[in-house]
């Protein structure tokens, strides 16, 4: 199928095409889902390499499931977030058992800001956000990242975390309050005074 036509298809249609041997469907689907999965897992684990492993494992499960995908039951992206979430939970538990918190291994996002100084401030802001997120309990962190960074709706988050919509609202509200507190002390460091 021509690439232009493929680009208009939704994730599920691409998955069905992949299962039916379309050579381009996998590439397009991977380019749609991988940035979201790496971003999500990266913010949950605060480790870029681990996040990429999780994203790859999630995609591998998707490829294996493709021929048996039951359409209409769940969105492909929601399913992928849920798998990534479960894999992240396993990793975090493993870390807790090993007692190795890799908080200082926060990945610094690449910045193409106009000036070096501005770039550093922006990177610092992102690093501060990641550090603050890492200080939240796991469920709150997941809910906040999915709601405010990944931009998902509450019902979608409820499906991913397998909880009710009201519980999602409560998690995001508490998560945001805790983030605000964690960031309050870093206000000056983040450069907001400078910007205002």
């Amino acid at each position: 199928m021509p690439r232009d036509t493929l680009a208009e298809l939704d994730d599920e249609a691409l998955l069905v095409l992949y299962a039916n041997k379309d050579p381009d469907a996998a590439r397009l689907l991977a380019h749609r889902l991988m940035p979201r999965l790496v971003g999500y897992a990266g913010r949950l684990l605060a480790d870029r390499a681990e996040a990429e492993d999780i994203a790859q494992e999630t995609m591998l499960r998707l490829w294996k499931l493709a021929p048996d995908w039951r359409s209409g039951e769940a969105k492909v992206s929601t399913w992928a977030y849920r798998v990534a979430q479960n894999l992240c939970t396993d990793r975090l538990r493993l870390r807790q058992r090993r007692g190795a918190e890799a908080l200082d291994a926060v990945a610094e996002p690449a910045s193409d800001a106009a000036t070096v100084v501005a770039g550093m401030i922006e990177a610092d802001r992102m690093a501060a956000l990641d550090a603050a997120l890492a200080s939240l309990p796991e469920r709150q962190r997941s809910a906040v990242v999915l709601r405010h960074i990944e931009g998902l709706t509450n019902p979608e988050i409820a499906e991913i975390l397998q909880i009710g919509v009201e519980a999602v609202e409560s998690l995001t509200a508490r998560g945001k309050r805790a983030l605000t507190l964690a960031l309050a002390g870093q206000r000056a460091e983040l450069g907001y005074e400078e910007a205002e």
Partner: peptide, 30 residues
Amino acid sequence: LFAQAKAKPMAPSAAVMARVLADAAAHQPQ
């Protein structure tokens, strides 16, 4: 901050994309 994080998604490395596509090719039904 959220808007900033949203605007700059973490791009997966070329290496991991290559691994994902290799997995896809290996598991594509024949």
